[in-house]
Write a protein that binds this DNA or RNA. Sequence first.
RNA 1: GGCCCCGUAGUUCAAUGGAUAGAAUAGAAGUUUCCUAAACUUUAGAUCCGAGUUCGAUUCUCGGCGGGGCUACCA
Length: 598
Amino acid sequence: MDQLDHLLAQSAVKACAACFEATVDASQIQLQQTRKEFEGDRTIVAFPLTRHSKKSPEETGKAMGEWLVAHDELIEAYQVVKGFLNLTVVPSYWTKELLAACNQPAYGLGAPRSKPKVMVEYSSPNTNKPLHLGHLRNNFLGYSVARILEAAGHEVIKVQIINDRGIHICKSMVAWQKFGNGETPESTGLKGDKLVGNYYVAFDRAFKEEVAKLVAGGQTEEDAKKSAPILLEAQAMLHKWEQGDEEVVALWKTMNGWVYEGFGQTYTEMGVDFDKLYYESDTYLLGKDQVEAGLEKGVFFRKGDGSTWIDLSDEGLDEKLLLRKDGTAVYMTQDIGTAILRYSDFPGLERQIYTVGNEQEYHFKVLFKILKKLGVEGAEKNHHLSYGMVELPEGKMKSREGTVVDADDLMAEMANTAREMATELGKIEDLSESEKARLFKQVGYGALKYFLLKVSPSKSMMFDPKASVDFIGNTAPFIQFNYVRANSILTKCGAAGVTTEVKEIDAQAWDADELRLIQHGLLWPGTLQTAAEQCDPSVVANHAYELTKGFSRWYQDHPILNEEDLAKRDARIALTQFVAHQIKSSMALLGIEMPVKM
RNA sequence: GGCCCCGUAGUUCAAUGGAUAGAAUAGAAGUUUCCUAAACUUUAGAUCCGAGUUCGAUUCUCGGCGGGGCUACCA
């Protein structure tokens, strides 16, 4: 619902009062964009109003249309098709709005910090293996949502919690001790996360061999999996870590350090960052006090064996464990502690948004309910930004089966494809090597980000490594290419001494195609609003694509700088500038940069 | 078994209960004296099945069928 819809709804309410003596609330007026095959700009659906008008949909629409044309100076004409009242808005309205938008660099954006403080958590990897395609979707999504919320006017804090402790990292550590021969990232030339990941794989291989041996020796597979010596070693190591054993902690710090170094490089390439990092090793014990306190308040209860639980059957869920019988914390305990810690770290925090895969929907449902029962204020506002799996043609990615698409490899491949394409087209010879390298990343990474963000988060999506990510069609490179064309014209304006400053626009300069393009651009404030409310970057991606497609079509048969009618030329330059600017700022919210040349 | 999500052109994705279900790709046919052809134009092609609610259902309800996930004293 944008400004115009708002005005029209108000008018429609008046029309209903005047024509039918009916009191209708503005919320009952159904407004939509008029479909392009009909004449008009906005459409009021007449069906729902018939019970007020006591007339047929056609007569209802006709009566309202007559009244609106006569009484609302914004409306130039109307047409009733079946039960739909199509309204044509006076062209000067669009021109006026366009002019205002052109002179407002932050057009469509909310005033900074005009909305509550929110926290967006994303990434949150384990430190025992490198980042993969699923993490890319997570990071791009979380980062983009943060940018969108910020653009909408929220103060945003980007965080992640790093799962730096636990049996998984101990597995890598044990394997490194046994098979590593003192290897380091320096000695091998490998990224630290890759090196540690290799030992995780090595652990798994050794573990499987041991299990096979034990099974051959007569054990059941189940027993063998519990008693494999290397697993026992890893468990012993975790125990030592928890005791604070110096040697183990030192190794743990060293290997995690390698991983952070490697992750840091990957984050830089991805273009994402964080305002604060939380480490599970700092927070994993935090929730215990909260649970003890909750126990006293009677929110939780203790079973005969000493374990602590919450009963959520009144909320339609079941019982959930919070402390083991030995009193140690579980995942949920830690999340309770971390959530509460964050409220105290950032006073005034309205809500936390967790970017985590949809397989954890149940977990977060439970977490939010527990927080609420513990009396955490605003707990119900927290949001699990749940997203679907990235599926490969052969099914789910499984690190143990080697069907993982590595994040670094994929990004390198994307930049490489961009290089091949650009070289073939041969339009960038005059760029320096570093400019070229930057361009290939802008285009290649842009294509990847757009590919992952254009799909609604909640849906699982298909990624076929063999088909590779497209660079033509509904893609970032298509959008970038059109931005480059627009930018090229604007640069030429400067060279030709034509001003791009927009002071006035001739309202008669536009044809129907142009009006449509302008109208689409003017939807941007409402679109951004929607994207922020729904935490959905695909809404922004969609808008940018539609706008670009409209521009591309228009560009094809409308001379801009070459237009002889100067009033038209200036109007078109203004429109070009408007579109280019909006493409750039909307794509920036997806973390995608626009090149100046390609 | 229980709970949750998803089924739309060959393929990958759209569509607050609204008009003739949109795009993109792949297919077929075209467009470069002119601001960047990574472009543009034309063409063909789909709502898993069955009921129900509604003036109107891809959308809501119920029942099938098919796919995925959760259902750990793992994280």
